[in-house]
């Protein structure tokens, strides 16, 4: 049952990487019998869990990774874009909500479209009624409340997408994570999506430097963290990376408004930032292997 919901991609993963215990558990369930407490999100399992909600969190982990971090002046998002093949375009990982808010997504893009449209409406209505950019925390709360409804009402499905939200208001730049379980938290730095644990490990190691970092340093840290989520033979390129920025104009930027409105960098303009990255410490030269994460990446096309 659960596998049907998650679709063929999931099965592809399972077929390929059956090393994880969790994955084996799900696999066994599908083949032999359905999980008793996962067909309906209004029923708790005897362990006090809502399986459908947890599957939704899995859907977020299916999406390619997104990383967010902030300094005292800037907030940035970095995301890895997938493409279904040589002939296909890369997916869209970042969405502008308003001049002062932008998001990066991981999970079901179509769910993200619905939610981000709702966020845009909220942002515009705040400007219409109060002539005020919507406070970021309240914007994130509204979608968290919306997501919560889907975890409690019969006949609904939780959103299958997670967001990183960056925004700025009179208290400075902010970074939030939104998840389909209806929670939202503010962070100094965070990552979501496939193999995001590796990025988190990097961020946890370096987060103390972020507050005082320049925009360029912040992006470099973000790229380093994002790189950790890649498979062994892959690299960050101008085609598979998106950068979202909020805050004053950086050294390499042109045509940024004085308020430092949200902008998305893709393609050529990213090159200058990719070049600032330090070469990756390879597995051979590293003394300790990279920490293994519970979540697995799906096949990534070039």
């Amino acid at each position: 049952m659960s596998l049907c919901m998650l679709g063929p991609t999931r099965q592809c993963v399972l077929g390929r990487a059956a090393s994880s215990n969790t994955v084996q558990f799900y696999l066994a369930n599908t083949i032999m019998f359905r999980n008793t407490y996962d067909s309906d999100n209004t029923v708790f399992s005897p362990q006090g869990r809502l399986h459908q909600v947890e599957y939704a969190l899995e859907a977020v982990k299916q999406g390619s990774a997104a990383v967010g971090l902030r300094s005292k002046t800037h907030a940035v998002l970095l995301a890895l874009k997938r493409s279904t093949g040589e002939l296909a375009s890369y997916q869209q990982k970042m969405i502008r909500i308003d001049d002062h808010v932008g998001i990066a997504i991981a999970g079901l893009t179509s769910d993200a479209r619905v939610l981000s449209n709702f966020m845009r409406q909220q942002a515009m209505s705040s400007r219409m009624v109060f002539n005020r950019p919507i406070p970021v925390n309240r914007l994130v709360s509204t979608i968290a409340d919306k997501a919560q409804v889907n975890t409690q009402e019969y006949g609904r499905r939780p959103y299958g997408v997670g967001f990183l939200v960056i925004g700025q208001d009179h208290t400075g730049p902010h970074l939030y994570e939104f998840s389909p379980s209806g929670t939202s938290f503010e962070y100094y730095a965070i990552s979501i999506g496939a193999r995001s644990q590796s990025a988190k490990t990097y961020l946890e190691k370096h987060y103390e430097e972020f507050a005082e970092s320049s925009l360029e340093d912040l992006i470099r840290h973000g790229l380093h963290a994002l790189r950790e989520t890649l498979q062994q033979d892959k690299e960050l390129t101008i085609n598979n990376t998106s950068i979202g920025i909020l805050g004053p104009k950086g050294e390499h930027e042109k045509g940024v408004t004085s308020e430092g409105s949200f902008r998305i960098l893709e393609g050529e303009p990213i090159d200058v930032y990719l070049k600032t990255m330090e070469p990756k410490v390879t597995a051979e030269s590293a003394s300790a292997p990279a920490p293994s994460s519970g979540d697995e990446d799906v096949q990534m096309a070039e």
Partner: peptide, 9 residues
């Protein structure tokens, strides 16, 4: 949350 409506709002 510290976001108060001012006279302009």
């Amino acid at each position: 949350d510290g976001h108060q409506l001012g006279p302009k709002q």
